[in-house]
Amino acid sequence: MSEKITITIDGKEITTDTEKKLLWVALDNDIYIPNLCAIREEERPYAGCRLCFVEIEGLEEPVTSCTQPVTEGMVVKTRTPQVDRLVKTSFELLLSDHRLQCNKCPKNKACELQKIARERKLKLKSKRIKHLERTFQIDDSPESFALDPSRCVLCNRCVWVDRNVAKAGCLGFSYRGINRIITTFNNVELTKSACTQCTLCVEACPVGALYFKE
């Protein structure tokens, strides 16, 4: 059973209910916290992108707000030196493995990475962390969209939509570590897989990895 409680985020008092996770309470109250992998409907947060850190009074280290249940009287800061440092490193790490050519990217200006950079005044090109030069095959077999793994941030959103909304069972993760990648079964082209071309995954993608061709 949820109860009404009051919490404070960045000095702003907010009334909400106990069942909610901190990230959504903040976003619903126009307080931006960077995030890529969070899905509101999902009970067990994925917690993979490591961007939504906040500091909570009484806790020693920053926590991810997507996993943090709100409690009465909780005092939250979305910007502290430690939070900013973690978000900066996490962002730079993601960008070090993201093919940057925004002007050629169909998601230019609609990209979540650009939004995070803008909100947190972060640079898309890191000075300290080297860019990983990796090459991937683009799959443009579907009629209206394509998949470019070199832009993928492995946020899980497309996989989640594929399973829970489209119920296609086409996309999934394979391999692990730095080789982890979004694939179809046996890495075949989308048109040869269980893909129904419903394009829900394209709409879910926060970056330019899954994009409409036009």
Partner: peptide, 13 residues
Amino acid sequence: DLPPVDVYGPATF
């Protein structure tokens, strides 16, 4: 009764 990609994932993991 699994999507084949859910067999492929663990097999490559």
